[in-house]
Design a protein around this nucleic acid. Sequence first.
DNA 1: GTGACCACCTGGCCGC
DNA 2: TGCGGCCAGGTGGTCA
Length: 273
Amino acid sequence: MPELPEVETVKEALKRKILNKKIMNVKIHYSKIIEYPTNDEFIKNLIGETINDIKRRGKWLMFELNNYYLLSHLRMEGKYNYKSSSDELGKHEHVEFIFDDDTSLRYQDTRKFGRMYLYKKEEAESKAPLNELGLEPWDDRLNSKYLKEIYKNKKKEIKSVLLDQSIITGIGNIYADEILFLSKVNPYKKACELKEKELNSIIENTKKVLEAAIKEGGTTIKSYTSEEGVHGRFQQSLYVHQRKDEECKICGTKITKVVIGGRGTYYCKKCQK
DNA sequence: GTGACCACCTGGCCGC
DNA sequence: TGCGGCCAGGTGGTCA
């Protein structure tokens, strides 16, 4: 599933292809992808807009247009295909953005979980989803004091809390497992019980893991590939995620898989006591 | 405010 | 071979 590094990879790939293209038409084939505004307004407002820049906030792609921000979340299996506008519609392509040079960008999503918002530029930051996002991993304000203050009332397992996008944005299930492994923190540990040293370790390893994953083009698991169909190379660098019963790369103990907060969680019982 | 649970979706996998 | 059931998981909504 696309997490921060995968979204960053998609963003860079899209920038190489669709910057400065003008939208001539929009076709929606599955209406629920558009969360806000209505389908009709979405189409009407986008026609005539130019894609001036593409940014990222957490796992959200932000297409900067003349007057609007188009926000797109890929959720589990969303991806973008860049094709000729005359190409046949793919089976799971739900939204088409047709440009003035007869090319098109298509949003494809097998499981239809992805969502899009279209806001006027001046109001995008003050509305959901952007105003509900926590700090980016590289934000200077992300320190042990910040986490301690928020975590003090969190009695849930740290594994679940790391996935809370309103605290640190961009961490998903794969990288949460990897961050906790490198930080030598047991995923069952309650967030409110973490010591300052552990919080600092989590912060440092969050940056380290995500930076390395971005460098490697993200992680490819099962259905997810990047916008260009490129397979992320970070898969080979994973210490624990999806390595059940394989040997820990540090101590040789078999990796354990459990379910925490409904999510498959992989960890080493010896390294993460 | 917090935590637990469920719905949204489809394809892949497994057992029968 | 075909069918049914389960699982995967990011997020938002509901309820206690």
